[in-house]
């Protein structure tokens, strides 16, 4: 018998011969929030929670988004963008003289337009998101075409993330219902942090030290 058969056999013995109990877990917890997705209340809650995590948050109109992107990133030097972001975002970046590095999800990491080491020297990364959870101040990326590979939002020191109003849900269960399990996901709730030294909080340990959220209201 190999280890697999041995372990499974021991588990079955440990559980006894009877049929496995059909436990149905009680689900009395909230499966939706009290505010509708994309409502003003949900947006206010998200802003409150993001600010609490010391992310920089701005609400902008759809028409003002390109100028906001240009303003926020103007000093960054070079910016990584996934190849699926709207072309006007890229135009906004080039209009202020920024060097734009494009990430192409299909390409292998080492031979694409961008090598991992390069990411350590770019000034910032600009992405969209898949869903945002107001109650916990969480932004979820699922490597969609406008979010890029996981690595691009990890190595650069600054992450500017655009959240559309209709992407904001209030609670974790609402986000889980939208997300597809098998896509690679990164849930981001504020900048990286540690309390490992005398429980004193230090922000910006490994991920981007600044998280800047543009909410398109």
């Amino acid at each position: 018998m190999n280890a697999r058969e041995e372990i499974l056999a021991r588990v079955r013995t440990a559980l006894g011969d009877g049929p496995s109990e059909d436990v149905v877990p009680p689900r009395g917890y909230r499966s939706t929030g009290s505010h509708a997705p994309g409502s003003d209340e949900a947006l206010d809650l998200l802003v409150d929670r993001l600010e609490d995590y010391r992310a920089v948050v701005e609400a902008v109109s759809s028409a003002d988004l390109p100028s906001a992107i240009a303003r926020v990133l103007a000093e960054s030097g070079s910016v990584v963008v996934p190849d699926g972001v709207p072309p006007e975002w890229v135009d906004a970046l080039t209009s202020v003289g920024l060097e734009v590095r494009t990430d192409r999800p299909g390409a292998p990491l080492a031979t694409g337009d961008l090598a991992t080491g390069d990411l350590d020297t770019v000034g910032a990364v600009l992405t969209a998101c898949r869903v945002a959870i107001a109650e916990t101040g969480t932004i979820v990326l699922d490597a969609g075409a406008d979010q890029g590979r996981r690595v691009i939002t990890l190595v650069p020191d600054r992450h500017v993330c655009v959240v559309r109003r209709d992407q904001v849900v209030e609670s974790v269960p609402e986000a889980i219902a939208i997300l597809q399990a098998t896509r690679p996901q990164t849930w981001i709730s504020g900048p990286s942090a540690t309390s490992d030294i005398e429980l004193s909080r230090v922000e910006g340990v490994h991920g981007p030290r600044t998280l800047h959220v543009l909410i398109v209201a």
Binding site: Y29, R49, Y53, P105, G106, A107, P108, L109, I133, E135, T136, G137, T138, A143, R149, R150, V151, V172, I176, A181, T182, R183, P184, Q185, T186, W187, I188, S189, G190, P191, S192, A193, S195, G207
Partner: peptide, 30 residues
């Protein structure tokens, strides 16, 4: 259920800064 229970019980945060999820291998990513 667990993504609501764990951070609050562990660090007292509403949500921990980063959660990573992956399924097998994603071609070209990770």
């Amino acid at each position: 259920v667990f993504l609501q229970l764990l951070p609050r019980s562990s660090t007292g945060e509403r949500m921990n800064p980063y959660t990573s999820m992956w399924t097998g291998v994603t071609p070209g990513d990770g």
